[in-house]
Design a protein around this nucleic acid. Structure first.
Lengths: 335, 335
DNA sequence: CTGTTAGCGCTTTCAC
DNA sequence: GTGAAAGCGCTAACAG
């Protein structure tokens, strides 16, 4: 575990100059084949790894990106991160992951550290879809906000289209013949809850229908899903479709419906939101859900960073990405 | 978004030499207070951020660590990552997150990239607790394997103690007066399944008892939990405690017991494994579970890296970290 | 084709 | 106290 070999070591061993060694290693074409072979051999013998720090110092770009997140716990972060890694391509770009734990001071620390390390760009991932404070504009590298938009409309933000998600859920239920549709959602202070409800009402109105009862807000838990659906069924026994604001809520609803002896999807169809597979695939029946395409979101965010680095003009503002319906047994009976 | 200011810019603006500017900024003490103030003012005016690349090049260490993981999806990665970030301290050290997607080639690519970037150390996080191939010993920085140990006993590995976990689960059930205990586990090809079963049998034998039936293996799903517990109850109706190999299995078991009209925990106690809160907190009743202390695991892994960097002698081999019992309503009735 | 030289941005002796 | 100079490891002109 001694110190890594340098290009000088390689050059000396191969009996050439530093410049020649560099050219040989990097595939420049002004090198005699025999020389190149000798250099490469030496490099291998010494287990030479080019010092990327030195390269970056010269090139002025590091091939690194900072991912600044509010909460690592959130399951939204991971697919976004994967999408970003994907878009950057393995090995070309590396991602610094920084978790600010929801603390503004910590976030500033991390931001500073990332800039010191000369990342080529920064992706900011929020924990909710609510707008978050902008990092400001005196940052010398491009910044893209993912999942949670920046509150500054001149920033570049990429978020899932929650309104479309709500609409999509209702349209699916309508397409299966449901007409008496209710909506159990989560915490009403979340933009996600509001946006999805807008989509739900929108689609119903378009079909000339109205929501059964009011939107039921509380929190995103299974517990609430159980309680709310019990209330719903007692007040509106004729409901035949429930749009849930999250898979957790949907799962709770399924449990209660089961307890009440209702058949899903025959008596009532249930649709969730997030397509959180550990919940959706294990419920009885399996849960139809809206998938926010987060991996795609991460890819797009990464692409925006690239474009900005390459000097392409990127349009500021909030870009809403399409969501996707994943149909399972809770809305369509399995044959 | 023009290029960042350099120390030369600052020095020129403050009317001092490069060397003096450096000393002033870095709090060296051979600088006149007035000079220092002038330099700092200039640095602020120019929004100067010291180029960490240049510093690292000189110091020979970067203050970065690579985290090489097999699957980002896995929920085990996140707490480990958080623990590591924690231990390194915000801002001092930054983590490169690399997801090899379970592909050895990709892993090699990432490893190479990390070494090129001169990370000070590498943490390898596996997706299962089964031993994984070593990265080998010709790596010029310390490597620590977390969650999944290296198959080379001369490497440093840090893993949760699954045997102790199985033992702990049984001991808890015994302490609540259960005597007829069964064990529904997951995929028998997983070391985790085998180790936990060893612990379970161990604790039973110590108490002079035997497992009810054989260990039931299949996979880690709720589905299997439901099926297995139904089989179990029909073959051994007198069972009064079930140790489950995962929270998913436990959750399935709870569902079936509920369907069969069994009271949990009065008739039968159920204990899960992993303490995956989205499952454990939302089940009825809430699920007692074994927590592998993964965040702690991440912290220890980070500490081992540090120790190796600082030249402290670290003992090679697999270090098994204690797990923890989290008691909820599925084993002890809520008052 | 190969080698010499000048930096990338910074820290650190070592004179003054 | 301050500054000139060397050098971290590498690349990119430019001569030979």
């Amino acid at each position: 575990m001694r110190r890594a070999a340098t290009l000088s070591d390689v050059a000396r061993m191969a009996g050439v100059s530093l410049a020649t060694a560099s050219k040989a290693i990097n595939g420049r074409d002004q090198v005699a084949p025999s020389t190149r072979a000798r250099v490469i051999k030496a490099a291998e013998d010494l287990a030479f790894t080019p010092n990327q720090l030195a390269r970056s110092l010269i090139e002025g770009r590091t091939g690194t990106v900072g991912l600044l997140t509010g909460d690592l716990e959130g399951r939204f972060m991971i697919p976004i991160l994967m999408g970003a890694e994907d878009a950057f391509g393995a090995g070309q770009v590396n991602v610094f992951l920084c978790d600010a734990r929801g603390d503004a001071i910590r976030e500033q620390h991390h931001l500073r550290a990332l800039l010191n390390r000369r990342v080529d760009g920064i992706i900011v991932v929020g924990r909710q879809t609510d707008a978050r404070p902008s990092l400001g504009h005196d940052i010398p590298v491009p910044v893209v906000y993912a999942y949670a938009p920046s509150d500054d409309p001149t920033d570049v933000s990429v978020v899932p289209d929650n309104v479309a998600g709500g609409r999509l859920a209702v349209e699916h239920l309508l397409s299966t013949g449901r007409r008496r549709i209710a909506h159990i959602s989560g915490d009403p202070s979340y933009a996600a809850a509001q946006d999805r409800a807008v989509g739900v009402n929108d689609a119903l109105r378009t079909a000339g229908l109205e929501l059964v009862g009011d939107v039921m807000y509380s929190n995103w838990s299974e517990h609430w899903g159980r309680a709310a659906s019990a209330m719903l069924l007692s007040q509106h026994p004729d409901v035949d479709g429930i749009v849930c604001g999250s898979d957790q809520i949907a799962r709770g609803a399924l449990d209660t419906l089961r307890d009440l002896g209702k058949e899903v999807p025959d008596d009532i169809a249930v649709i969730g939101y997030d397509n959180w597979e550990v919940l959706a695939l294990n419920s009885r029946p399996e849960l139809t859900s809206i998938d926010a395409n987060l991996q795609q979101l991460g890819r797009v965010a990464a692409r925006r960073i690239f474009q900005a680095i390459d000097g392409e003009q990127t349009t500021a503002g909030v870009e809403e990405l399409p969501v996707r319906l994943v149909i399972r047994g809770s809305t369509i009976p399995r044959r």
